[in-house]
Amino acid sequence: MIQIIDYGRGNLNNVVKSFMNFGYQAEIIDQPKSIKDLSGLVLPGVGAFGDSMDSLNEKGFTSYIRDYIASKKPFLGICLGLQLIFEESDEFGDQKGMGVLKGRVTRFDIDEKVPHIGWNQAEFKKESRLFKGIPDESYFYFVHSYYVTPEDPSVTTTTSHYGIDFTSAIEHENIYATQFHPEKSQKIGLEVIKNFGELCAHHTSR
């Protein structure tokens, strides 16, 4: 079972559906359940950083996510879900993140329109199982004003260019995350969902 964390914003049915289309069991949870039977956990993202972090804390999800990640089973963060696992963000003043990975989330300070909205290319920096079968420089859908700078650059799997080169996907041990929205990136995005489903299934069968 793959769980998708609902912490108050957004319709997550299409994330569930996208997993089910590929034959993977998935459900939305709005409070922590047992991580024992889980094969995958997804932290999606719609909302502002501080507001979302408060909501995750209130619902007891932060320790749930930490415990789950410590279990070494695959985790997927999407958009804000990527940003929240880092240490801190400067969105609406300094805000503390979960600090699972080291790094800061900062606002684009570039000579381009911000937010960064639309389809941009992801350039591979290292091999990642999340991008299996996906061509280099494929277009994915982004909608964000903030980006993450990991302290350890080797976690970056893809970068994208918008005024600067920024980290658009990461992989570190069992942690996978994308700044773009695979669930909103049509066919190519669904490949990412499928790959994550496979990772979860593979982990369970080991």
Binding site: G47, A48, P115, I117
Partner: peptide, 9 residues
């Protein structure tokens, strides 16, 4: 609205 969802929304 921006405070709740972020400006991008």
């Amino acid at each position: 609205g921006a405070r709740v969802f972020g400006s991008q929304c």
